[in-house]
Every structure is written in C-alpha cells, then in structure tokens.
Computed example of a mutant assay.
Amino acid sequence: MRRRNTTSKEAVLSVLTNARKAMSQDAIEREMDVDANRATIYRILNRFCEDGIVHKIVADDGKQYFAVCVKCDDKAKLPDNHFHFRCTNCQTIECLPALVHFSVPTGYKVGSLNCVLIGVCSDCS
C-alpha cells in the first residue's frame, strides 16, 4: 500500500536522519519544526518500522528508541536483528557496526532478538 507523504512524516524522518543515532519519541518531538502530537509521532514511527525505514530498540530503561540505521549500510553483513550499544557517559544509543556473536543452549532457536549492550562508547573512552 502506498502511504501518503505528510509534513509530519517528513519532519520525523528528517530528525532521525540528521541525528544519526537512536532517539526516543519525546526527543524526536522536541527536535521537530512542525507541530504533531504524541500519538501521531508514534503512528508515524510504527509505520516507518513496518516499512523498514527505521527500526525500534527497546533499551534497558524500558524506553523505545527509533533509528535510521546509518552504520548498517552493508545489509549482507549486518542482519535486521542486530545488537545496539548504549553509552552510560553520553547516553547515545547506536547500532553496533559489526556482528556480535552469541550462542544459546542446544534445543533453543532464536527467531529475533532485542539486545542493548551497555558501557562506554568509542567516542567517550
């Protein structure tokens, strides 16, 4: 289905693209140059997720963050279900630019993952 392009959608995508990091709904709303209520922004973000434009990260604080995955240019190397990193110093949440390997016990099959590693990022260390 073709979706209508609106100024609110353009503003949300512009904020996320320019940020080059994951952002929460309230942070996106603060950065937007057009008026849109919370429900509209969440609806836009969820449609962007459905359409594969952005992806959602649920961090260790339980908050949802959304990102245009700018470090994931090579989709052959980095799958949609990849690890993220939250810096305890600058509070940035970003996609890790390389695969993180993990294993699960025999008999378990991973269908998807939501993993945020926490520590100090390369910019802050």
Score class of each variant (00 low, 15 high):
47 R>Y: 10
88 T>M: 14
47 R>D: 13
42 Y>M: 07
65 Y>F: 10
65 Y>S: 01
97 P>S: 15
58 V>K: 12
50 E>Q: 12
88 T>L: 15
100 V>W: 04
104 V>E: 01
46 N>T: 04
66 F>C: 00
67 A>D: 09
80 D>P: 13
56 K>Q: 07
74 D>T: 10
58 V>T: 09
43 R>D: 08
73 D>S: 13
81 N>R: 12
50 E>D: 03
91 Q>E: 15
57 I>H: 03
85 F>R: 01
66 F>G: 02
46 N>R: 08
92 T>A: 13
55 H>S: 08
60 D>C: 07
97 P>N: 15
96 L>D: 09
100 V>L: 02
63 K>E: 11
96 L>G: 04
56 K>H: 00
72 C>M: 14
81 N>L: 11
89 N>R: 13
50 E>M: 08
79 P>Q: 10
82 H>N: 01
103 S>C: 06
50 E>G: 07
58 V>L: 06
42 Y>V: 09
63 K>V: 14
45 L>M: 06
69 C>I: 14
72 C>I: 09
76 A>P: 06
50 E>Y: 07
96 L>A: 08
99 L>F: 09
93 I>A: 03
102 F>P: 00
58 V>C: 04
66 F>D: 00
98 A>M: 14
79 P>V: 10
76 A>I: 12
97 P>E: 11
86 R>H: 15
88 T>R: 15
94 E>H: 12
83 F>R: 08
66 F>P: 00
41 I>M: 05
44 I>D: 00
100 V>G: 01
78 L>P: 03
44 I>W: 02
86 R>Y: 02
42 Y>G: 00
102 F>V: 04
89 N>C: 13
69 C>H: 11
59 A>T: 03
70 V>H: 08
63 K>T: 15
88 T>F: 14
73 D>L: 14
84 H>Y: 07
71 K>F: 15
99 L>A: 12
85 F>P: 00
98 A>G: 12
75 K>A: 13
54 V>A: 04
66 F>S: 02
47 R>G: 01
58 V>S: 06
62 G>F: 07
74 D>G: 06
